[in-house]
């Protein structure tokens, strides 16, 4: 399978990437690791006219401690995140979740910014970013630099609040107040997308693939805040969700999985708290 024809351009700086995107218009896409975009292009589900390769912008690949938060460059690969000593000690939820994405080849290419901007509800990192209360930094020629809360970023399948030509540049994550964390997902094979997943950081619980965006499990969070134990709170896991029916199983099956996985995640997070 070969993608439909497109024009390839390579940016050597963020400024150049924004310039190229502004010139190419609405049918341009940024190419980071390409491991979400390229499969869609090969299936002709995505047909951009211009690809702007930002994969070599080393200025966007870093993990560092800033004032009260950890800053992760948008082009940091899953593999680099999984191997980061700083993240292992400060944000083990992120480091662990990144180590569970796809397979080594995918993790060598895929980037955190690419995964977030792609906005696939079956992807792991969007829910992790929501559970961690992350803030995303985006740059655009018209909009300038702006910060967007993870909870406001995802609109729907493959759709975010990013405007055409706007580039996600950094993910800022506050140091968690509460140490307990867990990441659970259920997939048929190790390399598959999650049928359902859950990320827990302290009192925050976010679900993978239980709707068209990552979803905070508010019912679970409220039950925990009211003093419920893990098992009791997990019974609320499917409230307010809108999981789809597909070949991996009907909606009721996903709702069952959500309750089971949230229960396991809360128990594991409590053991780490």
């Amino acid at each position: 399978m070969i993608p439909a024809p497109f024009t390839y351009q390579r940016a050597s700086s963020v400024d150049e990437a924004l310039e190229l995107a502004a010139r190419a218009g609405e049918d341009a896409k940024f190419l980071a690791g390409g491991h979400s975009l390229m499969p869609l292009m090969k299936l002709r589900l995505a047909v951009p006219e211009t690809l702007i390769d930002i994969g070599r912008l080393g200025e966007l690949s870093y993990v560092r401690a800033d004032d009260g938060h950890i800053a992760v460059g948008a082009l940091t690969t899953h593999d680099d995140i999984a191997r980061s000593d700083l993240l292992a000690s400060e944000l083990p939820l992120l480091a662990h979740a990144a180590s569970q994405i796809g397979d080594p080849q995918v993790r060598h290419c895929g980037t955190i910014g690419g995964s977030l901007a792609h906005s696939d509800p079956a992807a792991d990192l969007p829910a992790v970013a929501v559970a961690l209360g992350a803030t995303f930094v985006a740059r655009g020629r018209r909009s300038g630099t702006r910060e967007i809360a993870a909870g406001d970023f995802f609109l729907s399948l493959f759709e975010t609040v990013l405007e055409p030509g706007e580039l996600l540049t950094e993910i800022r994550i506050p140091k968690p107040q509460s140490a307990g964390w867990s990441f659970q997902k259920f997939a048929k094979r190790g390399i598959d997308w999650a049928i359902v997943g859950v990320a827990v950081q302290g009192p925050n619980v976010a679900l993978v693939n239980m709707g068209s965006t990552p979803i905070r499990a508010r019912g679970v969070e409220q039950a925990l805040a009211a003093g419920s134990g893990p098992r009791e709170a997990a019974a609320h896991a499917a409230e307010g969700t809108s999981a789809s029916d597909d070949l991996n199983g009907p909606r009721a099956y996903r709702e069952h999985l959500a309750r089971v996985l949230v229960g396991r995640a809360l128990a594991e997070a409590a053991s780490r708290g």
Binding site: M1, Y8, R10, L31, G34, H35, M38, P39, K42, D53, G55, D79, D103, P104, Q105, V106, H108, C109, I191
Partner: peptide, 26 residues
């Protein structure tokens, strides 16, 4: 041809990648 099976794995700058999901331009 869908980045699942790994038969196309090569090393790119020393690290394994699936060459069916990487552009020659990259």
């Amino acid at each position: 041809d869908t980045s699942s099976c790994g038969a196309c794995t090569v090393l790119l700058d020393g690290r394994s990648v699936k060459s069916c999901t990487v552009l020659a331009a990259q």
